[in-house]
């Protein structure tokens, strides 16, 4: 089961996946390649380090257990599809005490002046807080991009067409641009 962590650096996901299917010990190479990206994705979405670590554990456990089901050329979107579903489950489990992201964003959307509310606070000057003012669907497309997934992979993870992805991305970026410009105007963005 010994695996040289550096040995897979130059290999494609396809090659690493094939190796891991024949020798589970080789899964370490895929794990090393993606654990940081997966954790960051979870942390962005859950906004809690401990919850993000729990989710990351679940994601890689599921991936490891179900590796034979992964098609050869689709490891990254397959992995992030698992991540997407695990994070949704986390939201559901947190519902009694923590408002769902959808709920939070609905509140943001329904607020009289959400931008002002965010920008007027010094703590709202960070990008993360600006992202929280987007709808759940808009955040998803941006978070997958930040995780390194391209448009095609994002479509696969979210199960949406390119047209829908483009529409969500376009709306998200225009809204984010507006928020950033407002933040700059108020001097809250360093």
């Amino acid at each position: 089961m010994h695996t040289d962590r550096s040995s897979g650096a130059a290999l494609s996901d396809d090659a690493l996946l094939a190796a891991a299917k024949s020798d589970p010990g080789q899964f370490a190479l895929l794990y090393d390649r993606y654990v940081d990206a997966v954790f960051r994705y979870c942390h962005r979405r859950l906004d809690d380090r401990e919850a993000a670590e729990d989710a990351t554990s679940q994601i890689f456990e599921k991936a490891f257990s179900n590796l034979p089901k992964c098609r050869d050329e689709w490891f990254r979107p397959w992995l992030f599809r698992i991540a997407h579903n695990v994070v949704i489950d986390c939201y559901r489990q947190r519902r009694p005490t923590v408002e769902l992201l959808d709920d939070a964003l609905q509140m943001a959307d329904e607020a009289e002046n959400p931008e002002e509310r965010a920008i007027s606070s010094e703590s709202a000057a960070t990008l993360r807080q600006l992202l929280e003012l987007l709808s759940a669907e808009q955040r998803e497309v941006i978070e997958l991009r930040l995780a390194g997934l391209n448009g095609t992979e994002s479509m696969a993870v979210l199960g949406i067409s390119r047209e829908v992805l483009g529409s969500r991305t376009y709306r998200a970026m225009n809204r984010l641009r507006s928020l950033i410009e407002d933040a700059e105007a108020l001097g809250v963005r360093s």
Binding site: V35, D36, F39, R40, H43, R44, R49, E53, L127, L146
Partner: peptide
Amino acid sequence: QNDPSEAVN
């Protein structure tokens, strides 16, 4: 340039 996430421990 401003990925707001934190690195994994």
